[in-house]
């Protein structure tokens, strides 16, 4: 009995999948293109939603137009261009490379470059500072002690003997 109720619950859930619009496609590649486009094109009304996700009138119209154009055999760039000439660059989630948008690519690169320079410089500073501190007075003292021991090895060895 429990199994049957569980199965029924599962079957109940299946209906939710059927709420998406059903559009007939004869070609599976066109269907895939339509899916891709409706997920990449942005709704101008409910901003931050793609047109597949939005129920705004303009999104419904854009979806219908996308379907129409894809059915006509237009490729991805053609459909995106069609939308851009009407709704502007805003309508595609991928911004074009322009003077105003170049910073989107340049800034992370510059930041990375700056950080690299900083790290390298810091590294070199540390290395040079290590070299600088080597011939200090303490080192000289130590060297003197070593030299002293080295010149009279017998006495040192003899000291340690009982």
């Amino acid at each position: 009995m429990r199994l049957i109720t569980m199965l029924l619950c599962f079957v109940w859930c299946l209906q939710l999948w059927a709420t998406e619009e059903i559009l007939p496609f004869s070609d599976p590649t066109q269907q895939a293109l339509f899916r891709e486009l409706t997920h990449e094109l942005r709704c101008p009304k409910c901003q931050n939603q793609n047109i597949a996700d939005s129920h705004a009138v303009v999104a419904v119209d854009m979806r219908r137009k996308t379907y129409e154009l894809v059915q006509q055999g237009q490729n991805k760039d053609q459909v995106i261009d069609y939308m851009k000439t009407r709704y502007g660059d805003f309508v595609h989630y991928k911004p074009p490379v322009q003077w105003s948008t170049i910073w989107l690519w340049l800034l992370p690169a510059l930041l990375l470059f700056g950080m690299l320079i900083f790290v390298l410089q810091k590294n070199r500073q540390q290395q040079t500072s290590v070299i600088e501190t080597e011939p200090s007075s303490l080192d000289a003292e130590l060297q003197a002690m070593i030299d002293e021991v080295a010149t009279k090895p017998d006495t040192v060895a003899g000291d340690k003997k009982p």
Binding site: P44, V57, V58, D61, M62, R86, Y87, G88
Partner: peptide, 8 residues
Amino acid sequence: IFDLGVSG
């Protein structure tokens, strides 16, 4: 309306 790029 679509050709003009009207969103609402």
